[in-house]
Amino acid sequence: MNQLPRTSAFFALQAEVADVLSTEAHLLDDRQYNEWLDFLAEDIVYFVPMQRNVEVGTHAERETTREGKDMHWFEDDKWTLTKRVEQILTGVHWAEEPYSRVTHLTTNTQIVTAEPSVDDATIVEARSRFIVYQNRVEYEEYYFVGKRTDTLRRVDTEIGWELVRRDVTLDQNVLLAKNLTVFL
């Protein structure tokens, strides 16, 4: 497993990162989209590949669409994510007008790596699990459930960290939703 030693500094850092992810979830659920964009680094990569059903032994090669090569649900940079927010805020983006009700649950947050060290980390990689619930108009309900690996960089902001990279494994093959207007 090669995991970091479970020291008190490790647990403090882990709690700090879990708190950051909760803050981010609140920004999204509270529709503070521009504040959420401020949490994203200028060089962010937001990556949500697709998942295939493949034969045992071929998962490494075939299960997940490949970054930089294949089609995905998302492989966005900051410009594109900013466009997505701008679109929601036009008031005529019918897939989010009226707004959906969305709640992000993040859990199982664990620090995987910390650079240069757990004691004075400026770059952290954290994995977590999420449930994103979306209720739309009257009867529409969607659950997006999966795994995240986030890279966070320490910065001098109120939150104290910015999101540099998010890898999302969404546990669906055929997407069981008409749209992905929510940020995962």
Partner: peptide
């Protein structure tokens, strides 16, 4: 193509609605 098309596509989301 990704930002235009499909369920995460900024154009086609409105079609789906």
């Amino acid at each position: 193509y990704m930002r235009y098309s499909g369920p995460a596509g900024m154009t086609e989301q409105d079609d789906m609605e």
